[in-house]
Design a protein around this nucleic acid. Sequence first.
DNA 1: TGACATTAGTTGCACATGTAACTAACTGGA
DNA 2: TCCAGTTAGTTACATGTGCAACTAATGTCA
Lengths: 162, 162
Amino acid sequence: MSTKQKPEDRALHLEQFLPYRLNVVGFFASRALGRVYGTRFGIGIPEWRVIAQLGEFGQLTSRDIGELSQMHKTKVSRAVAELDKRGLVTRAENRADRREAFVALSAAGQRLYAQIVPLALAFEERWIEGIAPEELRVFERVLAVLTERGRHLAGGYQTEEA
Amino acid sequence: MSTKQKPEDRALHLEQFLPYRLNVVGFFASRALGRVYGTRFGIGIPEWRVIAQLGEFGQLTSRDIGELSQMHKTKVSRAVAELDKRGLVTRAENRADRREAFVALSAAGQRLYAQIVPLALAFEERWIEGIAPEELRVFERVLAVLTERGRHLAGGYQTEEA
DNA sequence: TGACATTAGTTGCACATGTAACTAACTGGA
DNA sequence: TCCAGTTAGTTACATGTGCAACTAATGTCA
């Protein structure tokens, strides 16, 4: 502990309470992006994350997708099933381990990915527009620390890495 | 085709994509806090937010609570109803406008609030422990900007332009 | 080989949540 | 006074989600 002040003596102001603030900004991010993907392409955040990972890495198992995109395996399962139903991904059984299947973007999925990426990048660009690059670097560095600690504090809900 | 590197031509890496990162850290925050409140006091995040606002401001209408804590009115309605059922808040009709009611913490609610606040502050303290104060100040300043823009982007994002 | 543990992925179930519709009350003309 | 419009708050409904249980396949160890 680096502070000697007793927590009991301080007041709580929710609007300055960091977990609350992070949750709110995360909600806004999700909601704003959800509108972009939902209104134009009819997909939700989980589907988008699956597409994003497949677009980046090519071929992945559902387990990999969940780990990379921080999603519960049931959420991944449902998102992949939905994308499969729409013909945006293909599933190929792994002959070497028939429990798992390799998921990949179909041609239509790749076209969708190519459409979404510029929108996503432009969205991000607009969001951070005008913020000084060095401040943004500090922000991202602190964010990485908070995320890693938060992962630990929250306790894994998918993979127990203790 | 184009030899110039336009923003549209950049690759997307989800793990560095800011909206994604903010959503993940917000999820961790919510989940970690939810464990604290849930296991010890049997309440969820919405209930906690209502209690926090009432503890801070004393007496509020449901509408005020929703605005202050960024919650949908149905979420507030259900949280207040649950807290009422448990005897943690009181509801008093506003004689001057009988559509609304003033919600306040009961004695039991105040005792609960007094118990939770130190836990919440200690949680926050543990989370940001070791981060340089000046970096934290930068982080919070940028966070405020992103939150305000996110609120706007999430609320009225319907333009045709990316 | 055989028995048990582990893992990838799916599904049943209960619960949380947003949308829209609703009730009741207030506001502001004309 | 009347009536259309607005607002606070609740509820019906559909959907999304996590947990736990499940199936099927693989790993482990004797």
